[in-house]
Amino acid sequence: MPNTQQLKDLTTQVRRDILRMVHKVNSGHPGGSLGCAEFFVSLYNHIMEHSTNFNMDGKGEDLFFLSNGHISPVYYSVLARSGYFPVEELNTFRLINSRLQGHPTTHEGLPGIRIASGSLGQGMSVALGAAQAKKLNNDNHLIYSLHGDGELQEGQNWEAIMYASAKKVDNIISTIDLNGQQIDGSTDTVLAMGNIKEKFEAFGWIVIEIEQGNDIDSIISGMAEAKSKTGQGKPVCVLLKTVMGNGVDFMMHTHAWHGKAPNDEQLAIGLAQNAETLGDY
């Protein structure tokens, strides 16, 4: 089991990957990717029981579903650096004939991906289906999912949120990346969603809050608490408070870098703030 310093080093390297990937093709979504780097690193290197010997059915292991598919850079980087596919393949992000499409897909057979996402609001339903398949298969492993906060504006989420508690789907931990930002501005200015914690609780979910969503120890202890709440007849939601663009000072606390790549100079600044730890691809 890796220690916190190892996970921090990996996170720094993942940040470098994200910046370099989006810079190379001058497109992609660095903001949310950077904000969730610690979460992905912790999930794939400490929290989930999973196998890099990938098969679609994933019986006997925990499964993860990314609903807000635009943060594919962090997903790809962590999958590669966890051993799902060669790290060098990150070089092909968003290029023609690549398995690393702008938004994740199963269509090109990239190991680690079990559903296409990008059109928002669909991932929780899929995760619930996979959770119910686990129950039918008497498989005690868990389903994890990640969703953007702005993504909760999509109505399908609320169908899924209602269903999960009504049907007592208690082998799922759905995490909401609460960074308070979306493309057009803050979530409060675009479409204020009120108290998300109270909304989930009103829909019958157990809610765990992780106040320091960019701190690996906080993530690990919060997710352990979430895991301890599974199997009690209720779905579990984690509200992960993150900073969009975390780790690159000029990208932080703003929606400006939601879907914009850094130029050469900005890349250099970003990389200087995140010195190489495990080696660039």
Binding site: M56, D57, G58, K59, L63, F65, R114, I115, Q122, G123, M124, S125, V126, A127, L128, G129, A130, A131, Q132, A133, K134, L136, N137, D139, G155, Q156, E159, A160, M162, Y163, A166, K167
Partner: peptide, 24 residues
């Protein structure tokens, strides 16, 4: 082996997709 989804067809399609993962 039956899932009553309620009047929520979008959720039904997503749940169906998820159920295939695990061989259903």
């Amino acid at each position: 082996r039956f899932f009553q989804i309620g009047i929520a067809e979008a959720n039904m399609m997503g749940i169906a997709a998820g159920l295939t993962i695990g061989g259903k």
